[in-house]
């Protein structure tokens, strides 16, 4: 199947570009950091680090990946084959999500072993990664350089990390409940503070809805900023 092959080659490409080594180094750094914290702070720190892992890393790594491909003009050759833009978007998203899930699970197990039930935690990681990767892809399609991407993506990311201020008990507003990151934090925290079914259903639906929007936006950005520019001598 084309999508399976595309995911396999994307993983191979990410491996070849050192993404797996980079994630390993970052994960080991996080593990070391957690070791130095008092056990009372370790749970909160694990949630925070697990949150930044799929969200921020996925967001920025997809930017690097897409801009690398844009720099190599690889889209010119990829999309004169039966490869569909949707398959490209899914393949990139799922391959990076796998990386996030592996590293988050590794960090979690290193601290808490196999004593917890991390199903909702991992669901949170996967869904958060999917949303942020799609959002990052939409931004990256529109940018010409890494600098441009970092500027624009920081602005976008800033909006979505606001619910952290609630988690850290700095400031809160009911509007946070509309943001996908609120749902992410809820799912991630559930590993230590179990939540009722209604809450995890709310979290899953909210993240799924935002991911759907991010997908539509990424696909629109792709058509406008990649497809119309293909083949040189553009408009």
């Amino acid at each position: 199947m084309r999508l399976t092959a595309a995911i396999a080659y994307d993983i191979k490409l990410q491996f070849r570009h050192g993404f797996y080594y980079a994630y390993l180094v970052i994960s080991l750094f996080y593990i070391a950091l957690l070791q130095f914290l008092p056990s009372s702070a370790r749970e909160m720190a694990n949630i925070l680090l697990t949150f930044t892992d799929p969200s921020m890393l996925g967001f920025f790594f997809i930017g690097g990946l897409v801009l690398l491909e844009k720099g190599q003009d690889i889209h010119n050759t990829l999309f004169v084959t039966p490869y569909k833009p949707e398959e490209y978007i899914f393949s990139k998203t799922l391959s990076l999500t796998l990386l996030s899930a592996l590293s988050s699970y590794m960090i979690h197990v290193s601290q808490f072993g196999f004593t917890t039930k991390p199903l909702l935690l991992m669901l949170g990681v996967v869904m958060t990664s999917i949303f942020f990767t799609l959002a990052g892809m939409g931004v990256a399609f529109r940018c010409r350089s890494l600098n441009g991407f970092f500027f624009l993506s920081t602005l976008v990311a800033l909006v979505f990390v606001l619910p952290l201020s609630d988690y850290l008990q700095i400031w809160s507003t009911p509007l946070y409940h509309l943001l996908p990151t609120q749902a992410s934090l809820l799912l991630l925290r559930s590993v230590f503070e179990p939540i009722p079914p209604l809450q995890w259903i709310y979290a899953i639906l909210l993240l799924a809805g935002w991911s759907g929007l991010a997908f539509l936006w990424a696909r629109y950005s792709f058509r406008k900023f990649i497809m119309l520019q293909m083949g040189g001598d553009g408009p």
């Binding site: 092959a5 490409l13 190599q72 690889i74 050759t77 039966p82 040189g232």
Partner: peptide, 23 residues
Amino acid sequence: FEFPNFYGRFTAMENLSLFRSLY
């Protein structure tokens, strides 16, 4: 197209195998 674009970190064979898998 005029400008040949491939994945630079992949070998010629890997590139062709990748593109072949899309058909």
